[in-house]
Simulated assay, not measured.
Amino acid sequence: MTNYDITIHTRDRQRVSFACSEAEDLLSAADRESILLPSQCRKGTCGACVATVTAGAYRLGEVSMEALPENAQARGDVLLCRTYPRADLILEAPYDYNYIRFERIPEREAEVIEVTMVATGMRRLLLRLQPDAQGGAAEFEAGQFMEIQVPGSDARRAYSLANNTNWNGDLEFFITLRPGGAFSTYLESALVGDRLNLRGPLGTFTLRENGLRPRWFVGGGTGLVPLLSMLRRMADWGEMLPARLYFGARYEDELFCQEEIREIQDKLPQLQVKICLSRPGNQWADYRGSVMDALRDDLGSLAVLPDLYVCGSTRLVQGVTELALSQGLPDSCLQFERFLSA
């Protein structure tokens, strides 16, 4: 069987190469050579392993249109877990070289410290890593996620981290309860002291160093969670870049982390915040409308274009991306993560 040469160029102009047969997907071929590229579901549904083919022929297997829309496919975007080479391939990845692993992804055990209801249908889950040979610290990049194993099952669910790296080993999550969901069902009866198995950190939705360019953060629902982690890192590091947060929900009882946002503002006085409700009550005093409406109002009157960090539903990410590009923001200013059913 013919093997083809696969070369992936990272965002910081480094590269990795490996061989792949026409019967093997690119992600599996890289794994075989101990090159662990960023990925998650490996089923063509989450979009975490996206890259862009710049040279060569390939066959793209079945993928979710949410994870890889037709317009993305038309410009050469692929999901590595569903791409089979028909010639030597050259691809560009939307992340830096340091996000590629060449060793096993860490697996840790953590203890449940707190489970509390913080909004309608939402729980805050605080875990503390158990010390191992590497120590007990929680080390990750702001914006990354962990995979938590569902107790009594081999299934894992991915959840973004809300806090910042710390020596205590604390990991903070805000999780929407899904009716009948495997992990949601566990959370309904979770107890302090339970032990959970975790894998990670994972993900490439992280802060980029881009000079003095302002940072705007746009989140819908639990899309706020990784943005909180990023803002907390900026606060802890004393970063004084201009920043804005747009957080959207439908109803007021769906809002969460309002006190945490105020605490961040105390440390980041330059941070402007717009809490947007698309279905506000009569007493709502903040922005009345969607985050898209608020963003459209503000993007039109800028002298300096910001970096946009967007997290939420496919609809939100697509809408913000189209709006930003129509206002002249280049692709390089956009960082996004979609919440999809994997």
Rank of each mutant, 00 (worst) to 15 (best):
L187T: 02
L334V: 12
A142M: 05
P330M: 09
C46Q: 03
A29I: 10
Y84N: 00
I275N: 09
F174C: 06
G281K: 11
D96R: 05
G281E: 11
Q144Y: 04
L228S: 01
R233I: 08
R82E: 15
Q265K: 13
A57K: 03
L187E: 01
L255W: 07
E252W: 10
V291S: 05
F205W: 03
A162E: 07
A133F: 13
R178M: 13
C333I: 06
R208Q: 09
M122T: 12
C20R: 02
A155D: 14
T10G: 01
R296S: 14
V63N: 02
T116V: 13
I100M: 03
G193H: 11
N168V: 10
L228G: 02
D88Y: 00
A74W: 02
R178E: 14
E24S: 08
G219W: 04
F102C: 15
Q265P: 06
G181L: 06
I275M: 14
Y246A: 11
A133Q: 12
F256R: 02
M65T: 12
S34Q: 10
I275G: 07
T10D: 07
R195N: 10
C276F: 11
G44A: 09
V53M: 02
R250N: 14
D88Q: 00
G219M: 00
G238E: 02
C41M: 09
L224H: 03
G219P: 00
L196M: 05
F145D: 00
G121K: 04
V78T: 02
H9M: 09
E254A: 03
Y251P: 04
S21M: 01
M117W: 11
R86N: 03
P106C: 05
D5Y: 14
V16Y: 11
R195P: 07
G328N: 08
G238I: 08
L36Y: 14
L127Y: 12
A23P: 05
I105K: 05
A155Q: 08
Y287M: 09
A57V: 04
G203V: 05
T116P: 05
R279F: 12
D5N: 14
V50T: 14
S341H: 08
T83N: 00
S189K: 02
G61N: 00
A303L: 11
T206S: 12
L198F: 02
R42I: 09
M1E: 07
Y97E: 03
P179F: 13
Y4H: 01
G76R: 00
D5W: 15
P94F: 14
D297R: 12
A324M: 10
A342P: 13
E254M: 03
C41F: 05
T45K: 15
T185M: 10
E147N: 03
L177S: 04
R288V: 07
A29P: 13
L329F: 10
L26E: 01
G135L: 10
Y287E: 06
D96C: 05
V320T: 08
D12C: 01
P242R: 04
L299N: 10
G61R: 01
G152H: 07
Q283D: 11
D25P: 13
P201D: 02
P280W: 14
Y159E: 00
